[in-house]
Simulated scan of single mutants.
Amino acid sequence: MSSTSTSDVSSFVDLTQHEIEALKTRFNLADAHTHQRQSASQDKIVGRLPELWYESEQNQQSYFEAQFIDAFFRLHRQPTARTMGRTLLSYSASVATMVAAMYLKRREMTVSLIEPCFDNLTDLLRNMQVPLKPLPEQTLAETAGIYDGLVANVETDAIYLVDPNNPTGFTLLAQGLDGFREVIRYCVDHDKLLMIDFCFASFALCDPEIGRVDVYQLLEESGVTYMVIEDTGKTWPIQDAKCAMITASRNIHEDVYNLHTSVLLNVSPFVLNMVTQYIEDSIEDGFESVREIITQNRRAAEWALDGAVLEYQTPVVNTSVAWFRIKPEHLTASALQAELYDSEVYVLPGTFFYWNEPSRGERYVRLALAREPKVFASAMERLREVLKRHEQL
Rank of each mutant, 00 (worst) to 15 (best):
A100T: 10
E182D: 10
S7C: 04
Y103C: 03
Q277P: 09
E344I: 04
E230N: 13
A144K: 07
V275D: 10
A32S: 13
V316R: 00
M227G: 05
P167E: 00
R37K: 15
Q175I: 03
V228R: 00
A152V: 00
S41M: 06
D8I: 07
Q313H: 07
L259S: 05
N266C: 08
M109R: 08
M195G: 04
D148T: 03
T232V: 12
L264A: 11
T4E: 15
A370Q: 02
N258G: 05
E142Y: 04
L49H: 04
A204K: 02
A96S: 13
V365P: 04
V347P: 03
V95N: 11
D306P: 00
Q67A: 15
I69W: 02
T25P: 10
L383K: 02
Q239A: 10
L331Y: 08
D231P: 07
K44H: 13
L367H: 09
I283A: 11
S202E: 14
R106S: 14
F12K: 04
L393H: 11
D70M: 00
G179I: 04
W53S: 05
D178R: 09
V386R: 02
D148M: 03
N318C: 08
A335T: 13
Q67V: 04
Y160F: 14
Q42E: 14
F203D: 02
L383F: 12
N266Y: 15
S262L: 12
W323V: 00
Q58N: 13
E108M: 12
E142T: 03
K327R: 14
V111Q: 00
S92N: 08
M84W: 07
S378L: 14
A158R: 00
F376R: 08
L173K: 03
L23P: 02
T171Q: 09
D285E: 07
S202V: 10
G179D: 01
Q17F: 14
S249H: 09
S378M: 11
R363N: 10
F200Y: 10
T4M: 10
K105M: 09
V386H: 06
D285F: 03
Y160T: 01
V309Y: 03
T143L: 00
V46I: 15
E280C: 07
T247K: 06
E357G: 05
G350A: 13
Q17D: 14
T319N: 04
A301C: 10
W53R: 15
E220H: 12
R26A: 08
L331F: 11
A204S: 12
Q36F: 12
F324I: 07
H253D: 13
L49G: 00
N273P: 08
R86C: 05
P131T: 11
R363H: 12
A368V: 05
L140H: 00
E108R: 06
V290A: 04
L15S: 09
A100H: 04
S5Q: 06
Y147I: 00
F270D: 05
L383H: 01
V267E: 07
